[in-house]
Simulated scan of single mutants.
Amino acid sequence: MRKPKITVIGGGTGIPVILNSLRLEDADITAVVTVADDGGSSGKLRGSMRLTPPGDLRNVLVAMSDMPRFYEKIFQYRFADGDGDFAGHPLGNLIIAGISEMQGSTYNAMQILTKFFHISGKIYPSSEQPLTLHAIFQDGHEVVGESRIADYQGMIDHVFVTNTYNNERPKASRKVVKAIMESDMIVLGPGSLFTSILPNLVIPEIKEALLATPAEVAYVCNIMTQRGETEHFTDANHVEVLNRHLGRDVIDTVLVNIEKVPEAYMVSNSFDEYLVQVDHDFAGLQKQAKRIISSNFLRLEKGGAFHHGDLVVEELMSLVGKKL
Rank of each mutant, 00 (worst) to 15 (best):
D81W: 13
D157I: 03
L131I: 11
Q153R: 15
Q153A: 12
F116S: 12
A150W: 12
G140W: 05
H89E: 00
I149M: 12
L133P: 06
G84N: 12
F75V: 10
E72N: 07
E101T: 10
H118T: 11
I119Q: 09
F160K: 12
E101N: 12
D151S: 15
A135W: 06
F75L: 15
E142C: 09
H158A: 02
V159G: 02
F117P: 01
V159H: 05
I149V: 15
F117H: 08
R78K: 11
I95P: 01
S126K: 07
A135G: 09
I119M: 12
Q76N: 03
I99C: 04
I96W: 04
S100N: 06
I156N: 04
G88V: 05
S100H: 08
D157A: 11
F160V: 02
D83Q: 15
G145A: 08
M102S: 10
K115V: 04
M155Y: 02
Q103S: 09
E128W: 04
F79C: 01
K122W: 01
Q111A: 06
H158P: 00
G121E: 04
A150G: 07
D151Q: 15
T114K: 13
A135T: 10
E101W: 07
L113R: 11
L91M: 13
H134T: 08
R148F: 12
G145C: 08
K73T: 02
G98Y: 04
H118W: 05
N108M: 08
S147K: 14
V144K: 15
V159F: 03
F117W: 10
G88D: 00
L131A: 08
G140A: 10
I136W: 01
D83I: 04
F70L: 14
M155C: 02
S127R: 10
V144Y: 03
I96Q: 02
S127Q: 09
Q138N: 11
I95F: 13
R148Y: 11
I96D: 00
I96H: 04
I119F: 13
D85T: 13
A135F: 09
S105M: 11
L131Y: 07
I96M: 04
L91Y: 03
S120R: 15
N93S: 01
S147D: 05
A109W: 07
G104H: 10
K115M: 02
F116T: 15
T106K: 10
G145H: 10
A80D: 05
G154K: 13
M110C: 08
P90K: 06
I74G: 02
F160N: 05
Y71N: 05
L131M: 12
G104L: 05
R78N: 00
F79D: 00
E142D: 07
E72V: 13
L131E: 06
A109C: 07
Q153G: 03
E101K: 14
I96R: 06
G104D: 01
A109P: 06
A97I: 07
E142K: 14
R78D: 00
V143Q: 07
D139G: 09
L94Q: 03
M155D: 01
G104C: 05
G154T: 08
A135L: 10
Q111M: 13
D81I: 13
M155P: 00
S120N: 14
H134Q: 06
I156K: 11
P130Q: 12
E128L: 07
T106P: 06
K73M: 03
G154P: 05
I95A: 02
Q76W: 00
F75G: 00
I156S: 03
Q138P: 02
F70N: 11
F160G: 00
R78W: 00
L94T: 03
Q129I: 03
G92I: 06
Q103T: 12
G92M: 03
E72K: 15
